[in-house]
């Protein structure tokens, strides 16, 4: 695991230094000193990431197979990956649907979907909470905290 991290950090540092910083950080042409340039700090951080990656790689090689922390195993890794894909999809859908459907309705659907995904043993409670929690939060944020909660284009709440 430590070696994987080290290799990942080295690749990330190379990507930053060779591609990301030159292309995605702009600097005015009249900067007289490198230490004042907007590029200076990202390059320093990129270099330090590379060095840390190297150190991780070397220490990882020294203790190959021993001393690495272990994650708790799960019974159904394939199902787990499917659930992870589903929750990623749920997050993407929540983000894109919210402006159209409104935060309250989107939250209700997200609540039900997540409760289903984690196989709740209290489906009725989950369903009631899915309706009540977003409504209570809406009432608080919209009417007490005066936050303009997105209402969406379908059903508008008072």
């Amino acid at each position: 695991m430590q070696m994987q991290l080290g290799i990942g950090a080295i690749f990330a540092a190379l990507f930053l230094i060779l591609y990301a910083i030159p292309n995605w950080v702009s600097s005015p042409s009249n900067v007289r000193n490198i230490v004042l340039s907007p590029l200076f700090w990202p390059y320093i951080l990129g270099g330090l990431t590379g060095l840390t990656g190297l150190a991780l790689l070397l220490t990882g090689r020294q203790r190959l197979g021993s001393g690495d922390p272990v994650n708790e195993p799960i019974d159904d890794p394939r199902q787990g990956v499917l659930r992870l894909t589903a929750i990623a999809g749920l997050m993407v859908a929540t983000f894109w649907v919210m402006p159209w459907l409104g935060m309250v309705w989107t939250s209700m659907l997200a609540f039900v979907a997540l409760a289903f995904l984690v196989r709740t043993r209290h489906p009725v409670t989950a369903f009631v909470c899915a309706i009540v929690v977003p409504l209570v939060l809406y009432a608080f944020f919209a009417h007490v905290a005066s936050v303009a909660i997105p209402q969406g284009e379908l059903v508008r709440l008072p």
Binding site: T94, M103, S107, A110, F111, V112, L114, A115, V118, R119, T120, R121, H122, T125, A126, C129, A130, V133, P134, L137, Y138, F141, A145, V147, I149, P150
Partner: peptide
């Protein structure tokens, strides 16, 4: 129960971060 709490946390985070 944690499997009711986590969807609640998700909804609370959405509202809280948006606010």
């Amino acid at each position: 129960p944690k499997r009711i709490l986590m969807p609640m946390v998700l909804v609370l985070c959405i509202y809280g971060v948006f606010a």
